[in-house]
């Protein structure tokens, strides 16, 4: 098994437990406090659903990029990666707009423990998205020059992981009310 792929899986495992710690803590508190449903009602499911869709689509492009890279077509892979970058950027921008509207409505990170968890969990995830976007851009630039094509697959694994975390954050933060 290629070393890089093994290493990325190790990264994924260590990230699973980081998010696992936050989410387990959140779920415990959420189940303990029925009253949080009042707070949770203020999150906007439609924005969350839109962001899920954006992430889904961006990782479709990562899959295409991986396929192109395996065929040795760096330019095509690079093009797909840039589309993923666009998806990730859209996700972050939408998130920023969403937070802006929530903060202006008075729901800040210190409003209640629900909002603390909301901003912490989503913020930690958003940081991972931002980091992913930066790495995607570097790899896209390298791939265009036909360099380090195996890295396309590696960033793909990481990007899917970020997507899977969002699959769980979406119901936890936006649907369960």
């Amino acid at each position: 098994m290629p070393t890089g792929r093994l290493a990325v899986w190790m990264v994924v495992v260590s990230e699973i437990v980081v998010f696992g710690g936050v989410l387990a803590s959140y779920i415990m508190h959420r189940l303990a406090h029925d009253a949080w449903s009042v707070q949770a009602a203020h999150t906007n499911m439609w924005i969350g659903a839109f962001n899920t869709f954006v992430l889904l689509t961006s990782s479709l492009f990562v899959a295409f990029a991986h396929k192109a890279a395996e065929e040795g077509d760096g330019v095509k892979a690079s093009n797909f990666l840039w589309m993923t970058v666009a998806g990730g950027t859209t996700f972050v921008i939408v998130k920023a707009l969403e937070w802006t509207s929530e903060i202006t409505a008075g729901y800040t990170i210190t409003s209640s423990t629900f909002w603390s968890f909301y901003y912490t969990a989503a913020g930690l995830h958003a940081l991972h998205v931002i980091a992913g976007v930066v790495i995607l851009m570097i790899i896209a630039m390298q791939a265009r020059k036909q360099m380090e094509l195996h890295r396309v697959e590696l960033i793909g694994i990481y990007w899917y992981f970020v997507e899977i975390v969002w699959f769980f954050l979406f119901p936890l933060l936006y649907i369960a009310k």
Partner: peptide
């Protein structure tokens, strides 16, 4: 790898079940 991923998930379940009787 899949074993390790599964282990990580089980560990989180374990953490939850160990901590929930106090915290939840």
């Amino acid at each position: 790898v899949p074993y390790l991923v599964a282990t990580a998930l089980v560990l989180m379940l374990l953490f939850f079940s160990g901590a929930a009787p106090d915290v939840m």
